[in-house]
Nucleic acid binder design. Structure first.
Lengths: 213, 213, 213, 213
DNA sequence: AATGAATGAGTATTCATTCAT
DNA sequence: TATGAATGAATACTCATTCAT
């Protein structure tokens, strides 16, 4: 029963120099963990690749796993930002359902496509703390509420429980995209994959489906 | 660049005693990795819990990761068997689409519910070899073909590309179930989750949806 | 506030082979710490000198400090044994006070003379846990009781509080011997040192002194 | 065989400000080493507690051990000053032997009582250089000469070898006080301890004892 | 003179794996 | 076949010390 390790950054880099150091370290970490996987990615390698001494690394990150967490956080933040952007765009003016879905799926797809291997390491090898997932969950729940409002208000959409629908929407996209990224099926092009996903969700949400519920 | 490690079992246990030893080891491994995660699960602990010496463990498994692989394989085999069963049942007589989907989703759900924590370790921490996933992919592809035949033949189903639809079906269920298992959303009961998943897939596949495609 | 480290031996060596390993390690430790001091005495060096792998060392000793503790314990045990022997000898037949004192001082002196440098490391550099000193204290107290009985019964001795006298006796000898060992004053031969110590204690304890108390 | 490290202070603080810095550092060092022991007392902690940057610390002390040495020196100087005072007092007018002894013992006792834990660290953990002890020895020898003169001249004292007697006197007090400080025996009050020590030494030195030598 | 970010050599420790018994 | 003592390469991490600012 090991006490939970400290994973949060050690000190906030305030001066310009330290900020540079920190981002060099993160960049190095991303590259090293990409190439070498979780186990093979040693802190020494990370420091070396970042052009920084191990000591500096540990000045800002209390241990190896904190590096992974920071990377995962960075990724999550990007995702959140993207969704946030989408949501606020659509709050102003909701486009046709299909357009909305396509944009949503495409954005998440692009996000994951950027560094698929880092992704694999982050989510299939790294022992990310449950706190990370809880935070992610919470954030996703928050977005779900936003999405459910959009769905509830959308003329093309019909569903009994918009909150549930929103949750399914988010989860489905995440699940499918993850699956596609990690093992891209040769037979299905990204375009087809996205189109089909959008189609499925459209069917799920659209009014014409109502009669079947 | 580490040479690819040997991961397949060292010798097939033929005698009754060895078979017992092997399954004791696997059982011990399952328990230990559950409790301690990938990194914390040492071969010593596994052997101890299995009531066996480390030496014996290495007699049957060439290294630590082979244990994880065996566990993952065991899980996958169960899944395959389950799907195989379903498919052969339905080949004889195809029930209503909804019934088919419900059974499919429920079975996968149950399978994952059995040892969720082991699951997490297996698929989020363990460095399973890509071979494992390739094999899994291949098997899934194989099943997809079976499923696509069913879909193509089913009167309630309408889709342009049954193979694609089958693939989406499998991936969607896997993705959603994984998500649900790892972070069960408090607000959604298993029943509702399954029902909604079935609903979504039904909408996706059913003839009445055709007009929208 | 670090949690107190585990210092007790990891497993009792039961088989003959392991017993040999353990004593080789202790012997190596004694030599290495002698030569190199506490900080300079690395576990690697100890293992190497013991002709054993580091892993084996850690099989029996949970960390570096446990090695020092074991060495200190060994030393203390020898001292205890010696005193115990002396006490039981004298319980049978008490010799003249001077003889008793001389023997006592000489024994402790010899004990410390055996490995003076190891001693220095043990008691001037090593962070021995307070438990060690408490145990030592307790043992010494126990002996003090034995000594005080002898004193109380001895015809040549006169003191109001034999327990106190016994304590002073033990402490004085220890203090003087330590001092002599660590910085042997060139001007004073061991013989003279011992004689003088005995003389002081004799004066302190003997009846003829009583009138002055 | 590490080259002997530089341990003497780097520069004599001449200005008022620097003097303040230096004493702040020493004070911080005393506190930190008290709380954390030798190994746990890092230069960073010392600097922080002194309200000074590490850089400044190293401006005045070439390395960690120099801090310890300075602390030990400070302590020793106080002791020397105390003894020196005593000696010059008594050179003017020698009081009764018992008074002299009591004062001597009490002074050393008080000196050690001031920061017992720092003491423990200094003399049981810190790797003080042998030079320190040699210097201490030398100084003590010097005092021994002074003491031996007093003893030789004192009417109550009778001893063949005043130099030896003086040495024993100093060593005994040091040894006993150290022992008492590090592990204060619950059963013996400081007053009793001092009284008994004085008594022992009195017996050792006084004329009436002569007949027994 | 002061600062504190950066350094990196140095070490304790682990744990997968082997092999003599 | 089973055992578990022995192995030792591999690594995370610390902390005394430096030096650019």
């Amino acid at each position: 029963m090991p006490l939970k390790k400290q994973l949060s950054p050690r000190k906030q880099p305030t001066q310009a120099r330290s900020r540079a150091t920190v981002s060099a370290i993160l960049e190095g970490a991303a590259q090293v963990f990409c190439r070498e996987g979780y186990a093979g990615g040693t802190t020494d390698k990370v420091a070396k690749r970042a052009g920084v001494s191990v000591g500096s690394l540990y000045q800002y990150f209390p241990n190896k796993d904190a590096l992974l967490l920071a990377l995962a956080d960075r990724h999550a933040e990007e995702g959140f930002a993207m969704i946030h952007l989408l949501l606020s765009e659509f709050k102003a003016e909701m486009p046709r359902l299909e357009v909305f879905l396509r944009q949503f799926v495409q954005s998440l797809f692009d996000l994951h496509m950027r560094e698929p291997e880092l992704h694999r390491v982050l989510f299939n090898e790294a022992p990310l703390p449950s706190e990370f997932f809880e935070k992610k969950e919470a954030k996703e729940h928050e977005f779900s509420i936003g999405v459910s409002r959009l769905l509830a208000a959308h003329p093309e959409v019909s569903c009994k429980d918009p909150a549930l629908a929103a949750h399914m929407l988010v989860q489905t996209v995440e699940g499918l995209v993850h699956g596609y990224i990690f093992f891209p099926p040769r037979a299905i092009s990204p375009e087809n994959f996205i189109t089909e996903t959008v189609f499925m969700l459209h069917q799920y949400l659209s009014r014409s489906a109502e009669t079947l519920g």
